[in-house]
C-alpha cells in the first residue's frame, strides 16, 4: 500500500482544493467579467453588481419554483437551468430599466466616475431591499436533480484508494456553463460587428462617435450582457453552495479583486483573475496536515494543521492578493485601463 501514498495525497488535494477551486473560480470569473465590462464600457466601479447577481438568482429561484409547481423539472439536471434563460431576460430588462432611470442622466452630464460609484451604491440599496422584500434574507437551497457525479464511497470502492474523490454535479455544471458563457462572450466581443463596436467604444469613445457607433446601442447591449453574466454567476454560485443575499454582497470583494488582479477592463484578465483568487483562497485556507502525512516519513509528520490561514479569513486573501498586485503591478496581470 505504501506506493499509493502519493496517489492518495493527490486525490486528497484534488478533492479539497482543485475541484472546488475550479468551480468557485469559474463562478468568480463570470462575476468579475460583469464588473470588468461595466468598467470598460461605462467607466465606473459598479458596487451594485453583487446585489444584481443576487436579484438574478432570486428570479431564477422564483422561476424554478414555478416550474416545479407546474411539474416541469430538469430530471437529473437542476430545474434552475431551465429557469436560467427566463431569469436572464428579467434581469437584463431590470438593468436596462435602471440604466434608463438612473445612470443615463449622469452619463449625459458626463459625471465623474466616483459619482457613478456613489450612484451605484444607491442602486445597491434598492436591489438589496427588493431581494430581501421578495424572498427574504435567509439562506435558501434551490438545487434539485442528481446531486453527485462521483461519490467518495464509490470512488474508493472502485479504485481501492483510501482517499475518496467527490465531484458534485453542480461543479461540472458550473464549469460547462461557464465555458459556454465565456466562449459566447469572447466570440461576441472578437467576431461580431457589435462586439467590436463595444470594444472600440471602450477604447476610444470620441473616435467611436466619429465612426458613427451609436453610444446608446453600445450601452444597452452592455447592460444586457452584464445582466446575463450576473445572473449566470449568481445561479451557478447559488446552485453550488446556497443563496443568501448578504453572501452575494460579500462576494463584491473577491469579485473586484479578481477584476483588478487580472487588469480591470480586460475580459481575459477577469477570467484569469477569477481563478487566481479562487485558487489562492482555497489553497491558503486548506489544512495540509493529512496531505503531508501521506507524503512525509513518519518522524517528519506535522503536528499542527498546516494551515496558512483559517477559513474565517478567506476574504482577507482576496484583499492581500489585491494589495500585492497594487504594489507590484497596479495595472493588473493583463494590462487593464488606467484612469
Amino acid at each position: 500500500m505504501e506506493n499509493f501514498d502519493i496517489l492518495n495525497a493527490l486525490i486528497l488535494l484534488a478533492n479539497f482544493v482543485i475541484v472546488p477551486a475550479i468551480s468557485y473560480g469559474s463562478q468568480l470569473a463570470i462575476a468579475a467579467l460583469g464588473i470588468t465590462i461595466v468598467y470598460a464600457v461605462l467607466r465606473f466601479s459598479n458596487f451594485a453588481h453583487g446585489d444584481l447577481m443576487s436579484f438574478g438568482t432570486m428570479t431564477a429561484i422564483l422561476f424554478t419554483w414555478l416550474f416545479q409547481n407546474l411539474g416541469i423539472t430538469g430530471g437529473v439536471l437542476p430545474t434552475a437551468l431551465i429557469a436560467l434563460p427566463f431569469a436572464i431576460i428579467v434581469t437584463a430588462l431590470l438593468c436596462l430599466l435602471i440604466d434608463k432611470s438612473v445612470y443615463r442622466f449622469y452619463r449625459k452630464q458626463k459625471s465623474h466616475a466616483v459619482v457613478f460609484m456613489i450612484v451605484s451604491v444607491g442602486v445597491m440599496f434598492i436591489l438589496n431591499a427588493t431581494v430581501r422584500f421578495i424572498i427574504g434574507p435567509n439562506d435558501r437551497t434551490f438545487f434539485d436533480g442528481e446531486k453527485f457525479l462521483i461519490r467518495a464511497l464509490d470512488f474508493k470502492a472502485s479504485t481501492g484508494l483510501e482517499e475518496g474523490l467527490t465531484i458534485k454535479s453542480t461543479q461540472l455544471i458550473t464549469v460547462i456553463v461557464a465555458i459556454i458563457t465565456m466562449l459566447l462572450l469572447f466570440y461576441f466581443l472578437q467576431k461580431t460587428k457589435m462586439g467590436k463596436a463595444m470594444r472600440a467604444y471602450s477604447n476610444n469613445e470620441d473616435l467611436a462617435l466619429l465612426s458613427g457607433i451609436n453610444p446608446d446601442r453600445v450601452v444597452m447591449i452592455t447592460w444586457i450582457i452584464v445582466g446575463a453574466l450576473g445572473t449566470i454567476a449568481g445561479v451557478l454560485y447559488g446552485l453550488d453552495k446556497s443563496f443568501k443575499p448578504f453572501t452575494y454582497f460579500q462576494l463584491l470583494l473577491p469579485m473586484f479583486a479578481a477584476a483588478i488582479v487580472g487588469g480591470i477592463g480586460n475580459p481575459i484578465g477577469a477570467v484569469v483573475g477569477g481563478y487566481i483568487i479562487a485558487f489562492s483562497e482555497i489553497m491558503l485556507t486548506y489544512a495540509y496536515k493529512k496531505f503531508f502525512i501521506y507524503l512525509l516519513p513518519e518522524h517528519l509528520e506535522p503536528s499542527g494543521l498546516m494551515q496558512f490561514l483559517s477559513t474565517d479569513y478567506k476574504f482577507a486573501i482576496s484583499f492581500i492578493i489585491l494589495v500585492i498586485v497594487l504594489i507590484i503591478r497596479p495595472t493588473g496581470v493583463f494590462r487593464g485601463k488606467t484612469i
Binding site: K193, K196, R199, A200, N203
Partner: peptide, 12 residues
C-alpha cells in the same frame, strides 16, 4: 482604436 487590430480599426 489602439486596443483593436488594424483590420478591426478599418471595420469600425
Amino acid at each position: 482604436f489602439s486596443e483593436l487590430t488594424v483590420k478591426e480599426n478599418l471595420e469600425m
